[in-house]
Design a protein around this nucleic acid. Structure first.
Lengths: 190, 190
DNA sequence: ATTTACATGTAAGGGGTTACATGATTTG
DNA sequence: CAAATCATGTAACCCCTTACATGTAAAT
């Protein structure tokens, strides 16, 4: 149930239309909770019927735009959700599944995929660095800004980790592309 | 579609019943692709109708056990899937959503949750270290074992990252528990 | 014989993904 | 007015989660 709370958070900061939210998710909240426009429209409709948000009337004939704002009940819901503990999500990484499968049936063309992933993670890393330098160069007393900086550092650190780990993986596997020889020894697992 | 391929991988290593797989997922593959027994039974049934696996007959009256093994078509499917590139999954972390929401409506009791997450991540980290020391103490020439070691190091590094980041977060937020004062300055986002 | 553990399964609901549909505004 | 873009929405499908149901084997 995180999507609705991400939406409520975004709407509290600034009343927005569905497409506004989609764009804001693409660059900000989406860095740790992505969503497509279909998800957002569906959730907005639900939030409206549940009286957590309302669409506020627009100047006539401004496209089909529907701008939503959060009602007090929506804010209460968000506060209550924050307080509700939730254990960390277990990892779910298809690339690691592929590597695990490769340990049984051989690497195949996996090395190229590792290189591509490295490239993408490095790109994200660069973006985060740019945001950090532009928006968080100075330390702040403001709790809100410090929280946002902390979140950015989480994303930054994660991307940094993946780049380093992928470098390690590529270095280790690059040497024996040719010795495609799965199942010489049965893998162990416990 | 990673679950079925994780299952095919596990079954290639050792033919298993649904419950066997559930247990193996709990401690091995589940570290990077978790699954409940219901998911596994459902996917096994599908894999069977699609002729990727078969249940092999058991000695009579050994419980309701149905042991599956992978057919050649199943192995082919796995090899083909490995070769299919897939971009990294975007992050999706409810804890970061909570922190982002906290930057708008205040921290609430979030600090305790950070502490609890830190504890859980540290516990996982310890488990991974133990596995590394027991199963991967010596370096190996075997590609299969090196891949599995690499995967373990990914999990280990991730948990280490989270512990460190949570320490940072707790240190930074621990000081101003009392100054619950959201919205002094409106947060910025672009 | 009853309880406990093992083993497989059904049902309902939530959420995410992809493809497609529809109408309004702006631009050439 | 035609095309491109903006903006909202529908539909279908798949996967995951949770709770519950059913039957068998082993233990006391």
């Amino acid at each position: 149930m995180s999507l609705r709370h991400a939406i409520l958070t975004a709407l509290l900061e600034r009343p927005s239309s569905g497409l506004d939210l989609t764009r804001r998710f693409d660059r900000s909240i989406g860095y740790f909770w992505s969503a497509t426009h279909q998800q957002i429209y569906r959730e907005l409709a639900k939030l409206e019927t549940e009286k957590f948000v309302v669409s506020i009337p627009q100047q006539p004939s401004r496209g089909g735009r529907k701008v939503f704002e959060v009602l007090p009940a929506g804010r209460d819901e968000l506060v209550a959700w924050i307080a509700r503990p939730e254990p960390p999500r277990p990892e779910r990484d298809p690339l690691l599944v592929r590597l695990r499968a490769a340990s049984v049936v051989g690497l195949g063309p996996l090395l190229e995929q590792l290189t591509e992933h490295r490239r993408l993670h490095e790109e994200l890393h660069r973006q985060y660095i740019a945001i950090a330098e532009r928006d968080f160069a100075a330390t702040s007393e403001d709790l809100s800004r410090r929280l946002q900086h902390l979140i950015l550092r989480a994303g930054l650190g994660l991307e940094e980790f993946w780049v380093r780990w992928l470098d390690e993986a590529i270095a280790e596997l690059g040497s024996n592309i040719e010795e495609e020889n799965p199942h010489k020894n049965p893998p162990m697992e416990e």
